[in-house]
Every structure is written in C-alpha cells, then in structure tokens.
C-alpha cells in the first residue's frame, strides 16, 4: 500500500517536472518566435523607410553639391545674372535666362495644353458614349507612354521645319517649338486627372441642376466643373511639374542657346537642358554651377509638389 502510494507521489513529481520543462520549452520557443517576429518587423520598417531615405539622400546631395558654386558666384549674380558663358575666358554664370525660359515655356504649355485637355476631359467624362470614352482613354494612355525622345524626334523633324517655314524664321528650333511639344506632353496628365475628378462628382448635383431647367452642357460647366475644381487644379499643377521637369524632348527642339527668352522664335535653354547639355564635358566651377542649377530646379519642383498636395487634400475633402 505504502509503496504504491509512494510510487504515485513519485509519479506526480515526475509529471510535474515534465510539465515544467515542457512549459519552459514552450516559453523559450515563444520567446524565439517573438524575437523572429521583431526582426522581421524591423526589416519591413527599414524597407518602408527606404523612400524617405531616398528623398533625404537626393535633397542632401543636391544641396551639398549645389551650394558651393552659388557661394562662389554670389546668389544674386547667379539667379539674376543675364548672361551664361561657362566656357568663355571670363566665364559668366547667370541663370536668369534659364529660369525665365523654364517659366515662360511652362506657362506657354499650360496656356495651350490646359484648355484642350480640360475640354477633352469634360467631353470624355460627361458626354462621350462608353465606347468613345474607352477608346479615347486608351489613346491618352498611349500618349502618356510615348518616350520623351520620340516626342523630341518628331518635334525635330516636323515641328521645327514647320515653324521655320510658316513664320519664315532662320531657325525653327525655338521657344515656340518647345512650348508646343510640352503642351502635347502634359495633355495626358491633365486629361486623366481631370476625368477622374469629374467622374467623381455626385450625380445628385447634376440632377438638381437639370431639374432647374439647365441644359446638360450648362450643368457640366456650371455645376460639375466647379464641384471638381480641386481635382482639376491638381491636374494643372501636375502638368506644370511635368513641363518644368522635362529635359530630353526640349533639348531636341529648343535650340539650346542660352539666350534670354525675348521672343517665341528665340533659340533658348531651359533649366533642365542647361544641366544636361554641359554635364558630359564640364569640370570645376562650371560643373558645380550645373549642380546649382539642378538645385534651383529641385526647389521649383518641391514648391509644385507642395501646391499639388494642397489641392489633392482639398479634393479628398
């Protein structure tokens, strides 16, 4: 009897010990999985932060490499100097011609591209049959996908000679040619984004307007468009960003001479093309000045991004 009791006790004790080790083992395993999970979480956090890192890297690099030349040249002389002669015996580093060309070129592209894009968007969103709408949307995506050098090539061989003949100027490679190419290149962004904004206008607004006796066309322009105005504004800002940042197509049609943009037929150089046209053979202060130009361009783009975000946020509300 006693032994049996004892053996039972022993058995219990053994069982307890087994459980305990089992429990500890489990806990250890759980701890290990926990550590694993934490490590994986950390890896994903790092991957997530890569974009932030890239933005910081780009900003820091541009600032660091852009500042020295500005310091040496002097900010006023650099930004407002009217002459750029980087390879002359007495080099001049004034980028006002580039800044003005970029601003004029972008403004011109907006003046031509926005009305066409906007009107197309209203038609596609509100009046086109589903078939026409989908066909045109395919066409617009195609327009967005064409590489900029192809625009440049067609511009070089069609637009530039065309301008020379029509306006009877010695060289068609000019601000005007760049403006037209840029206007075409920003069309898809403007159309796509405006169509999205217009499609999102609640049908109730349009019904209310029609019920008041407004025609469909009046309804679209007086109710739908104002209701989508933040989205359309964002589309325009996006177009500005595209136009001011475009390099290759402009390089091929603008003539690329650092003139002040006094006339539409002037051969001109943009901020973007100023960087790309001299980069391959530049050195010393000239090279540093190119980085400074990139920094100025970057600041323009950041300004545009902030504006774009402002409109996009408003659109969401």
């Amino acid at each position: 009897m006693k032994t049996r009791k004892n053996s039972k006790k022993v058995n219990h004790a053994i069982q307890d010990i087994k459980w305990e080790t089992e429990y500890k083992h489990q806990q250890k395993k759980r701890n290990r999985t926990q550590t694993m999970e934490n490590i994986i979480h950390g890896i994903f956090l790092l991957l997530g932060l890569i974009t932030v890192g890239c933005v910081l890297l780009i900003t820091v690099y541009l600032v660091i490499s852009g500042i020295p030349a500005i310091k040496e040249i002097g900010i006023a002389d650099f930004l407002f100097g009217k002459e750029w002669a980087s390879t002359a015996a007495q080099p001049e580093y004034g980028i006002l011609p580039f800044i003005l060309t970029s601003i004029y070129g972008t403004a011109g592209a907006i003046v031509i591209g926005v009305p066409i894009g906007f009107m197309t968007a209203v038609y596609l969103s509100k009046m086109a049959s589903p078939k026409v709408k989908s066909a045109m949307q395919t066409a617009v995506s195609l327009l967005a996908g064409i590489p900029s050098v192809v625009y440049g090539l067609v511009g070089m061989l069609v637009l530039v000679p065309g301008i020379r003949k029509i306006f009877n100027v010695p060289d068609g490679a000019s601000l005007l040619a760049a403006i037209i190419v840029l206007a075409i290149m920003i069309l898809p962004s403007i159309i796509k984004m405006s169509v999205t904004a217009l499609d999102a206008v609640p049908k109730e607004y349009e019904d209310a307007s029609l019920a008041l006796g407004a025609t469909p066309v009046e309804t679209y322009f007086k109710v739908s468009v104002p209701a989508a105005k933040s989205g359309i504004a964002a589309a325009v800002v996006l177009g500005v960003g595209r136009a001011i940042g475009e390099a290759m197509a402009v390089m091929m049609v603008a003539g690329n001479v650092p003139n002040m943009p006094d006339s539409l037929f002037q051969s001109v150089r943009f901020l973007t093309t100023a960087v790309s046209s001299e980069m391959s053979y530049s050195s010393g202060l000239q090279r540093q000045a190119l980085f400074s130009i990139a920094l100025v361009l970057f600041l323009f783009i950041m300004l545009i991004n902030v504006t774009l975000n402002f409109f996009l946020k408003r659109e969401k509300e």
């Binding site: 109730e204 607004y205 307007s209 019920a211 407004a214 209701a227």
Partner: peptide, 24 residues
C-alpha cells in the same frame, strides 16, 4: 421644379445655390 430624396445642395455658397436657377 423638383426636390430630391437626399438633400443635394451644390458645393457653393447658400446665395449661389439659390441664384443658380435664375442665373441659368
């Protein structure tokens, strides 16, 4: 004239909402 199930004022000022019809 018509009044709808869900109130559907235009996203404009009160004045412009009412003036929309006459202006049209």
């Amino acid at each position: 004239g018509m009044v709808f199930q869900k109130p559907n004022p235009f996203p404009m000022s009160i004045y412009d909402n009412v003036a929309y019809g006459p202006r049209t």
